Simulated scan of single mutants.
Amino acid sequence: MIKSDLTKGEIGDFYWGYIDRIPPDAKLIETLEKNTEEFSEFLKSIPEDRWQYRYSPVKWSILEMVQHIIDTERIFQYRALCFARNEPNPLPGFDHDIYVLNSEAEKRKAADLIEEFKIVRRSCLFLFKSFSEKRLKLSGNMNDMNATPRALGFIMAGHALHHKDVISNKYL
Rank of each mutant, 00 (worst) to 15 (best):
D144Y: 11
A151R: 04
S103G: 13
Y18I: 14
Y55C: 03
R79I: 12
H159F: 05
E48F: 00
E133V: 10
N146I: 10
S123D: 12
A160S: 14
G140K: 06
H159I: 05
I155R: 00
T72W: 07
N86G: 15
A147Q: 07
F14E: 14
M65E: 09
A147E: 11
M1H: 12
I155C: 07
W51G: 00
F94C: 01
N86A: 15
K59P: 11
L28W: 04
S132A: 11
A151Q: 12
E104G: 13
S61V: 12
M65F: 02
K164G: 01
K109A: 14
P88W: 00
S139M: 12
S56V: 00
S123L: 08
L32A: 08
H159W: 01
A157W: 00
Y99H: 13
E116Q: 08
Y78K: 00
F154K: 03
F154N: 04
L91E: 03
F39R: 03
Y18D: 06
P90V: 05
S130R: 01
E133Y: 02
E48A: 06
Y15T: 02
N89V: 01
Y99F: 15
V166R: 00
M156G: 08
I69E: 07
F83R: 01
R150A: 13
Y15W: 12
E30C: 06
P92H: 07
Q52D: 15
N35D: 14
D97P: 12
V66P: 01
Y78R: 00
A147W: 08
A151T: 07
L136D: 11
S56G: 11
R135T: 09
P90D: 09
L172V: 13
N146Y: 13
M142N: 12
I19R: 07
E64V: 06
G153R: 09
I29L: 08
M145K: 07
N141C: 12
K107Q: 10
P57W: 14
F83C: 07
N141E: 14
E87H: 03
L43S: 03
R54G: 01
M145Y: 10
L28Y: 05
P23G: 02
H159G: 07
N146F: 14
F39D: 06
L32C: 08
E64W: 06
T72R: 03
K8T: 13
R85H: 05
I22A: 02
K107A: 12
D112K: 08
S139F: 14
A105R: 04
A105G: 10
H163T: 02
S56A: 13
E37Q: 15
T148W: 09
R135V: 03
R54L: 02
H162V: 09
K109P: 01
M145N: 12
L113R: 10
R21M: 04
P149W: 11
L113N: 09
Q77C: 13
K164W: 10
C82N: 03
N86M: 13
I62G: 04
R79F: 13
P92L: 05
P90T: 07
P149D: 11
I2C: 08
K44S: 06
E48P: 00
K170T: 15
Y55Q: 01
